[in-house]
């Protein structure tokens, strides 16, 4: 299985390639990608340099142009596609139907990958993208169990890529307006979720209260680290319950599922984290590279390796286990 690693910056790209990534994915410094945060991403020139660096090590570069072009401003996204191809990208990761049409028509020789933002969660949806746009690979939304993934790989010739580590969307990706409900900015339209521009932390009676767009997302007592107020990871009240209504603040760690994912016919494993530090990326990529090597040699993944990757955070297998639903 290929290891697909996040490259938030040119330095992270080099770190990921050096640590053993088979491919890295990145985006341009604007709203054409779903990690549109200050200090991240690439100019066309930086991308071309990054592609050259990766190719020298035999690694590939996949360019994420995975937001939905704005009405009346489609040209910005067309240019991103053109620039990615000109820079030598090995694949485009897209989610908008119109943009896929543009890429398929103008750059038929460039590989088209279906972004997780396209919510292709079943064989028919995947076939739609394969038949109409010649898609070669699909990144599956994090709503499927491992047996369901196995059923998908049996039913389609399209390569399948799944997330195995990092931040977890609990809602179907590409179909979530929670952030824009509270802030006016959304992953689909602006490439951001729960943006820092709308976050406040205030001390109230000994507690730290985190808010997004003025809505209280969480409240932390003494000794409790104040987490970033990603909307769906907050504490709320519903009925008689109060707490993490949608999801606990956990990260995805499917390292223990690597054998199962291999048996399920998965082509590539994706690590989330373009906004993470270079050191984090090196650590995670190196660990997964060692895990994959162990898997290939029929050895089990050493227990210490997993702890190292978890970094003391709470982890989950997410939707890969059906009981998560």
């Amino acid at each position: 299985m290929e290891l697909i690693c996040p490259a938030g910056t040119p330095a992270s790209l080099r770190a990921a390639v050096d640590a053993g990534a088979d491919a890295v994915y990145c985006g341009f410094r604007n709203e054409t990608n779903a990690r549109n945060f200050p200090g991240l991403n690439f100019s066309p020139e930086e991308l071309a340099e990054g592609v050259a660096y990766a190719h020298r090590s035999g690694a590939k570069v996949l360019v994420a142009i995975n937001t939905f072009p704005r009405a009346g401003a489609v040209d910005l996204w067309h240019r991103a596609v053109d620039d990615a191809v000109a820079a030598g990208a090995d694949a485009l990761i897209l989610c908008d139907v119109g943009l896929m049409g543009y890429a398929a028509e103008n750059h038929p020789g460039t590989r088209l990958h279906v972004s997780v933002q396209a919510a292709a969660a079943n064989p028919d949806a995947i076939d739609f993208y394969v038949q109409r746009f010649n898609a070669k690979r699909v990144v599956l939304p994090r709503v499927l169990s491992v047996p369901e993934i196995a059923a998908i790989t049996r039913a389609t010739a399209c390569e399948v890529e799944v997330f195995v580590f990092g931040g977890l969307c609990v809602m179907a990706e590409g179909r979530c307006s929670l952030s824009s409900y509270a802030t006016g900015l959304s992953p689909n339209m602006n490439g951001v979720c729960s943006p820092a521009s709308h976050v406040t932390y205030e001390e109230e009676g000994g507690a730290i209260v985190s808010r997004l767009g003025g809505m209280t997302i969480n409240r932390f007592g003494k000794g409790e680290a104040a987490a970033y107020p990603t909307l769906c990871k907050g504490r709320f009240k519903a009925g008689l319950s109060s707490g993490y209504i949608f999801e606990d603040p956990v990260s995805l760690d499917a390292a223990t599922l690597l054998p199962g994912l291999r048996d399920a016919g998965v082509t590539a494993l994706k690590i989330e984290g373009r906004q993470r530090s270079r050191a984090y990326i090196e650590n995670v990529v190196r660990s997964f590279r060692e895990a994959l090597t162990a898997l290939d040699r029929g050895r089990s993944i050493p227990a210490g390796m997993l702890q190292q990757m978890s970094e003391g955070q709470s982890n989950t297998l997410g939707a890969y286990r059906k009981t998560w639903r």
């Binding site: 939905f68 072009p69 704005r70 009405a71 009346g72 401003a73 489609v74 989610c95 908008d96 139907v97 119109g98 943009l99 049409g101 543009y102 396209a118 919510a119 292709a120 079943n122 028919d124 949806a125 076939d127 739609f128 038949q131 590409g174 179909r175 689909n188 339209m189």
Partner: peptide, 26 residues
């Protein structure tokens, strides 16, 4: 859901609010 499109074989249909139509090209 986009998956329904493979079975419509070009027959006239409506697109609902859960399918992402954000721009004129799409």
């Amino acid at each position: 859901d986009i998956s329904a499109l493979v079975h419509l074989a070009g027959r006239p249909h409506a697109i609902g609010p859960y399918v992402n139509v954000y721009n004129e090209a799409t």
